[in-house]
Protein backbone atom coordinates (compact mmCIF):
# COMPACT_ATOMS: atom_id res chain seq x y z
CA UNK A 1 0.00 0.00 0.00
CA UNK A 2 1.09 3.50 -0.77
CA UNK A 3 1.70 6.00 1.99
CA UNK A 4 -1.09 8.24 3.21
CA UNK A 5 -0.85 11.62 1.40
CA UNK A 6 -0.19 14.54 3.79
CA UNK A 7 -3.23 16.57 4.84
CA UNK A 8 -1.62 19.81 3.72
CA UNK A 9 -1.21 18.50 0.17
CA UNK A 10 -4.82 17.37 0.10
CA UNK A 11 -6.11 20.77 1.12
CA UNK A 12 -3.84 22.57 -1.37
CA UNK A 13 -5.14 20.38 -4.18
CA UNK A 14 -8.73 20.93 -3.06
CA UNK A 15 -8.33 24.68 -3.18
CA UNK A 16 -6.60 24.49 -6.58
CA UNK A 17 -9.44 22.35 -7.90
CA UNK A 18 -11.90 24.93 -6.63
CA UNK A 19 -10.05 27.59 -8.60
CA UNK A 20 -10.08 25.34 -11.68
CA UNK A 21 -13.86 25.00 -11.31
CA UNK A 22 -14.27 28.79 -11.11
CA UNK A 23 -12.25 29.14 -14.29
CA UNK A 24 -14.40 26.53 -16.03
CA UNK A 25 -17.48 28.63 -15.22
CA UNK A 26 -15.80 31.86 -16.33
CA UNK A 27 -14.46 30.29 -19.54
CA UNK A 28 -17.68 28.65 -20.65
CA UNK A 29 -19.67 31.75 -19.70
CA UNK A 30 -17.35 34.13 -21.57
CA UNK A 31 -17.22 31.92 -24.66
CA UNK A 32 -20.95 31.13 -24.44
CA UNK A 33 -19.73 27.68 -25.38
CA UNK A 34 -18.10 24.59 -23.95
CA UNK A 35 -18.92 21.55 -21.86
CA UNK A 36 -19.19 22.50 -18.18
CA UNK A 37 -20.68 19.23 -16.85
CA UNK A 38 -17.87 16.89 -17.86
CA UNK A 39 -15.25 19.54 -17.15
CA UNK A 40 -16.42 19.89 -13.55
CA UNK A 41 -16.58 16.11 -13.05
CA UNK A 42 -13.01 15.53 -14.25
CA UNK A 43 -11.52 18.55 -12.45
CA UNK A 44 -10.21 16.72 -9.39
CA UNK A 45 -8.60 13.99 -11.50
CA UNK A 46 -6.84 16.51 -13.72
CA UNK A 47 -5.80 18.64 -10.77
CA UNK A 48 -4.30 15.62 -9.01
CA UNK A 49 -2.44 14.60 -12.17
CA UNK A 50 -1.15 17.96 -13.36
CA UNK A 51 -0.54 19.66 -10.02
CA UNK A 52 0.95 16.69 -8.18
CA UNK A 53 1.36 13.28 -9.73
CA UNK A 54 2.92 13.99 -13.10
CA UNK A 55 6.60 14.77 -13.67
CA UNK A 56 6.44 17.99 -15.67
CA UNK A 57 8.45 21.13 -16.23
CA UNK A 58 6.41 24.15 -17.34
CA UNK A 59 9.66 25.84 -18.39
CA UNK A 60 10.40 22.96 -20.76
CA UNK A 61 7.06 21.73 -22.11
CA UNK A 62 8.90 19.56 -24.66
CA UNK A 63 11.15 17.87 -22.07
CA UNK A 64 11.50 14.31 -23.40
CA UNK A 65 11.15 12.56 -20.03
CA UNK A 66 7.94 14.35 -19.04
CA UNK A 67 4.88 12.30 -18.17
CA UNK A 68 2.18 12.42 -20.83
CA UNK A 69 -1.52 13.16 -20.39
CA UNK A 70 -4.01 12.47 -23.15
CA UNK A 71 -7.41 13.93 -22.34
CA UNK A 72 -9.36 11.59 -24.56
CA UNK A 73 -12.61 13.24 -23.50
CA UNK A 74 -11.41 16.35 -25.31
CA UNK A 75 -14.65 18.20 -24.67
CA UNK A 76 -13.44 18.72 -21.09
CA UNK A 77 -10.89 21.15 -22.55
CA UNK A 78 -11.80 23.99 -20.12
CA UNK A 79 -10.77 21.83 -17.14
CA UNK A 80 -7.48 20.93 -18.82
CA UNK A 81 -6.67 24.53 -19.79
CA UNK A 82 -7.43 25.80 -16.29
CA UNK A 83 -5.32 23.08 -14.67
CA UNK A 84 -2.46 23.76 -17.13
CA UNK A 85 -2.67 27.44 -16.25
CA UNK A 86 -2.55 26.63 -12.53
CA UNK A 87 0.55 24.50 -13.20
CA UNK A 88 2.21 27.38 -15.08
CA UNK A 89 1.96 26.11 -18.65
CA UNK A 90 -0.07 29.09 -19.80
CA UNK A 91 -0.94 32.54 -18.49
CA UNK A 92 -4.17 32.72 -16.47
CA UNK A 93 -5.29 35.67 -18.62
CA UNK A 94 -5.21 33.49 -21.70
CA UNK A 95 -8.09 31.44 -20.33
CA UNK A 96 -10.32 34.39 -21.28
CA UNK A 97 -9.64 33.58 -24.95
CA UNK A 98 -11.16 30.09 -24.76
CA UNK A 99 -12.91 29.13 -28.03
CA UNK A 100 -12.53 32.63 -29.47
CA UNK A 101 -11.32 33.21 -33.01
CA UNK A 102 -7.54 32.97 -33.11
CA UNK A 103 -7.16 31.45 -29.64
CA UNK A 104 -4.73 28.64 -28.86
CA UNK A 105 -7.43 27.30 -26.55
CA UNK A 106 -9.68 25.56 -29.03
CA UNK A 107 -13.12 24.26 -28.07
CA UNK A 108 -11.72 20.76 -28.19
CA UNK A 109 -8.09 20.17 -27.24
CA UNK A 110 -5.70 20.99 -30.10
CA UNK A 111 -2.06 19.91 -30.02
CA UNK A 112 -1.22 22.02 -33.07
CA UNK A 113 -2.18 25.32 -31.49
CA UNK A 114 -1.14 24.42 -27.95
CA UNK A 115 1.81 21.99 -28.10
CA UNK A 116 1.85 21.48 -24.32
CA UNK A 117 -1.25 19.35 -24.71
CA UNK A 118 0.07 16.03 -25.91
CA UNK A 119 -2.59 15.19 -28.48
CA UNK A 120 -5.58 16.68 -30.22
CA UNK A 121 -8.71 14.97 -28.97
CA UNK A 122 -12.44 15.34 -29.07
CA UNK A 123 -13.58 12.56 -31.38
CA UNK A 124 -14.12 9.92 -28.73
CA UNK A 125 -12.34 6.58 -28.81
CA UNK A 126 -8.93 7.64 -30.06
CA UNK A 127 -7.14 8.96 -26.99
CA UNK A 128 -6.29 5.58 -25.49
CA UNK A 129 -4.88 4.44 -28.83
CA UNK A 130 -2.58 7.46 -28.94
CA UNK A 131 -1.66 6.90 -25.29
CA UNK A 132 -0.78 3.27 -26.08
CA UNK A 133 1.47 4.54 -28.88
CA UNK A 134 3.12 7.00 -26.47
CA UNK A 135 3.64 4.26 -23.87
CA UNK A 136 5.22 2.00 -26.51
CA UNK A 137 7.41 4.90 -27.62
CA UNK A 138 8.65 5.37 -24.05
CA UNK A 139 9.31 1.65 -23.69
CA UNK A 140 11.23 1.47 -26.98
CA UNK A 141 13.28 4.54 -26.06
CA UNK A 142 13.98 3.19 -22.57
CA UNK A 143 12.38 6.27 -20.99
CA UNK A 144 10.78 6.01 -17.57
CA UNK A 145 7.96 8.46 -18.20
CA UNK A 146 4.35 7.48 -17.59
CA UNK A 147 1.30 7.99 -19.81
CA UNK A 148 -2.16 8.87 -18.50
CA UNK A 149 -5.28 8.59 -20.62
CA UNK A 150 -8.43 10.20 -19.23
CA UNK A 151 -11.62 8.92 -20.80
CA UNK A 152 -15.29 9.57 -20.35
CA UNK A 153 -18.01 7.04 -19.70
CA UNK A 154 -19.98 7.74 -22.88
CA UNK A 155 -16.64 6.99 -24.54
CA UNK A 156 -16.86 3.44 -23.18
CA UNK A 157 -19.57 2.87 -25.78
CA UNK A 158 -17.07 3.53 -28.60
CA UNK A 159 -15.68 0.37 -30.19
CA UNK A 160 -12.17 1.69 -30.66
CA UNK A 161 -11.93 2.37 -26.91
CA UNK A 162 -11.93 -1.39 -26.46
CA UNK A 163 -9.51 -1.98 -29.32
CA UNK A 164 -7.07 0.36 -27.65
CA UNK A 165 -7.64 -1.08 -24.19
CA UNK A 166 -6.98 -4.54 -25.66
CA UNK A 167 -3.70 -3.28 -27.10
CA UNK A 168 -2.60 -1.74 -23.78
CA UNK A 169 -3.32 -5.05 -22.04
CA UNK A 170 -1.67 -7.12 -24.75
CA UNK A 171 1.56 -5.13 -24.59
CA UNK A 172 1.44 -5.17 -20.76
CA UNK A 173 2.09 -1.45 -20.62
CA UNK A 174 2.93 -0.85 -16.97
CA UNK A 175 3.62 2.79 -17.83
CA UNK A 176 -0.01 3.30 -18.92
CA UNK A 177 -2.85 4.40 -16.66
CA UNK A 178 -6.40 4.78 -17.93
CA UNK A 179 -8.62 6.96 -15.77
CA UNK A 180 -12.36 6.77 -16.32
CA UNK A 181 -14.36 9.83 -15.31
CA UNK A 182 -17.44 7.82 -14.37
CA UNK A 183 -19.97 10.62 -13.96
CA UNK A 184 -22.77 8.42 -15.23
CA UNK A 185 -24.19 10.95 -17.65
CA UNK A 186 -23.66 11.49 -21.37
CA UNK A 187 -25.05 14.10 -23.76
CA UNK A 188 -28.60 12.78 -23.90
CA UNK A 189 -28.93 11.37 -20.38
CA UNK A 190 -27.71 8.59 -18.05
CA UNK A 191 -25.30 6.12 -19.68
CA UNK A 192 -27.11 3.16 -18.15
CA UNK A 193 -30.43 4.07 -19.75
CA UNK A 194 -28.92 4.96 -23.14
CA UNK A 195 -26.35 2.19 -23.63
CA UNK A 196 -25.22 0.62 -20.40
CA UNK A 197 -21.49 0.15 -19.89
CA UNK A 198 -21.64 -1.80 -16.62
CA UNK A 199 -20.03 -3.84 -15.20
CA UNK A 200 -17.29 -1.49 -16.28
CA UNK A 201 -14.62 -2.44 -13.73
CA UNK A 202 -15.03 -6.11 -14.68
CA UNK A 203 -14.60 -5.18 -18.31
CA UNK A 204 -11.30 -3.42 -17.60
CA UNK A 205 -10.16 -6.43 -15.58
CA UNK A 206 -11.12 -8.76 -18.42
CA UNK A 207 -8.94 -6.60 -20.70
CA UNK A 208 -5.95 -7.27 -18.38
CA UNK A 209 -5.96 -4.01 -16.41
CA UNK A 210 -5.31 -3.89 -12.72
CA UNK A 211 -8.47 -2.01 -11.85
CA UNK A 212 -9.11 0.28 -8.91
CA UNK A 213 -12.39 1.97 -8.02
CA UNK A 214 -12.33 5.27 -6.20
CA UNK A 215 -14.31 8.37 -5.39
CA UNK A 216 -13.04 10.71 -8.07
CA UNK A 217 -13.60 13.77 -5.89
CA UNK A 218 -11.60 12.50 -2.90
CA UNK A 219 -7.97 13.56 -3.29
CA UNK A 220 -6.77 11.06 -0.74
CA UNK A 221 -8.24 8.23 -2.80
CA UNK A 222 -7.07 9.72 -6.11
CA UNK A 223 -3.47 10.13 -4.97
CA UNK A 224 -3.41 6.71 -3.36
CA UNK A 225 -4.70 5.07 -6.54
CA UNK A 226 -2.16 6.92 -8.69
CA UNK A 227 0.64 5.87 -6.34
CA UNK A 228 -0.53 2.26 -6.50
CA UNK A 229 -0.61 2.44 -10.28
CA UNK A 230 2.96 3.73 -10.26
CA UNK A 231 4.07 0.86 -8.08
CA UNK A 232 2.37 -1.80 -10.25
CA UNK A 233 4.87 -3.33 -12.68
CA UNK A 234 2.92 -6.15 -14.29
CA UNK A 235 0.77 -4.23 -16.76
CA UNK A 236 -1.53 -1.26 -17.16
CA UNK A 237 -3.82 0.13 -14.49
CA UNK A 238 -7.39 1.33 -14.90
CA UNK A 239 -8.89 3.68 -12.35
CA UNK A 240 -12.67 3.87 -12.31
CA UNK A 241 -13.24 7.25 -10.69
CA UNK A 242 -16.83 7.66 -9.59
CA UNK A 243 -17.66 11.30 -10.09
CA UNK A 244 -20.60 13.68 -10.32
CA UNK A 245 -21.39 15.45 -13.55
CA UNK A 246 -21.26 19.20 -12.89
CA UNK A 247 -19.56 18.64 -9.51
CA UNK A 248 -19.39 21.71 -7.30
CA UNK A 249 -22.31 23.59 -8.81
CA UNK A 250 -25.55 22.39 -7.21
CA UNK A 251 -27.85 23.02 -10.13
CA UNK A 252 -25.48 21.38 -12.63
CA UNK A 253 -24.83 18.24 -10.58
CA UNK A 254 -26.08 15.09 -12.28
CA UNK A 255 -27.72 17.11 -15.05
CA UNK A 256 -27.13 15.98 -18.60
CA UNK A 257 -28.50 19.34 -19.76
CA UNK A 258 -25.20 20.96 -18.75
CA UNK A 259 -23.12 18.49 -20.77
CA UNK A 260 -22.63 20.99 -23.57
CA UNK A 261 -24.57 24.03 -22.39
CA UNK A 262 -22.67 27.03 -21.02
CA UNK A 263 -24.14 28.90 -18.08
CA UNK A 264 -26.30 31.99 -18.54
CA UNK A 265 -25.26 35.16 -16.71
CA UNK A 266 -27.57 34.35 -13.79
CA UNK A 267 -26.32 30.76 -13.66
CA UNK A 268 -22.68 31.83 -13.89
CA UNK A 269 -23.12 34.27 -10.98
CA UNK A 270 -24.83 31.62 -8.88
CA UNK A 271 -22.18 29.03 -9.77
CA UNK A 272 -19.31 31.36 -8.81
CA UNK A 273 -21.05 32.20 -5.56
CA UNK A 274 -21.34 28.52 -4.73
CA UNK A 275 -17.67 28.11 -5.62
CA UNK A 276 -16.76 30.90 -3.19
CA UNK A 277 -15.92 33.55 -5.78
CA UNK A 278 -18.83 35.98 -6.06
CA UNK A 279 -18.27 39.17 -8.00
CA UNK A 280 -17.14 40.15 -11.45
CA UNK A 281 -17.98 38.03 -14.46
CA UNK A 282 -15.71 38.21 -17.48
CA UNK A 283 -17.07 39.99 -20.56
CA UNK A 284 -19.15 37.85 -22.84
Amino acid sequence: MAEEPPAELLSTLASTAREVRREIIRMTYAAASGHPGGSLSVTDLLTALLLHEMRLDPGRPDWGDRDRLVLSKGHAAPALYAALAMRGFLPRDELRTFAQLGSRLQGHVDHRTLPCVEASTGALGQGIGMAVGMALDARLAGRMNRVYAVIGDGECQVGSTWEALMAGGHYRLANLVVLLDRNGVETDGPTESIMGIEPIADKFRAFRYRTLEIDGHDFRQILTALAEARAWRDGPTAIVAHTVKGKGVSFMEGQHTFHAKPPTEVEARRALEELGAPGELPAR
Binding site: G129, M134, L136, E163
Partner: peptide, 20 residues
Amino acid sequence: FNVGVMEPTMVAMASGLALG
Protein backbone atom coordinates in the same frame (compact mmCIF):
# COMPACT_ATOMS: atom_id res chain seq x y z
CA PHE B 1 3.71 -4.02 -34.07
CA ASN B 2 1.12 -6.26 -35.67
CA VAL B 3 -1.93 -5.05 -33.78
CA GLY B 4 -4.49 -7.40 -35.25
CA VAL B 5 -7.73 -6.28 -36.83
CA MET B 6 -8.04 -2.84 -35.24
CA GLU B 7 -7.36 -0.31 -37.94
CA PRO B 8 -8.57 2.84 -36.13
CA THR B 9 -6.42 1.97 -33.13
CA MET B 10 -3.44 1.06 -35.30
CA VAL B 11 -3.66 4.58 -36.72
CA ALA B 12 -4.11 6.20 -33.29
CA MET B 13 -1.15 4.21 -31.94
CA ALA B 14 0.91 5.27 -34.94
CA SER B 15 0.11 8.86 -34.05
CA GLY B 16 1.09 8.36 -30.41
CA LEU B 17 4.42 6.83 -31.47
CA ALA B 18 5.02 9.61 -34.00
CA LEU B 19 4.30 12.35 -31.46
CA GLY B 20 7.33 11.02 -29.59
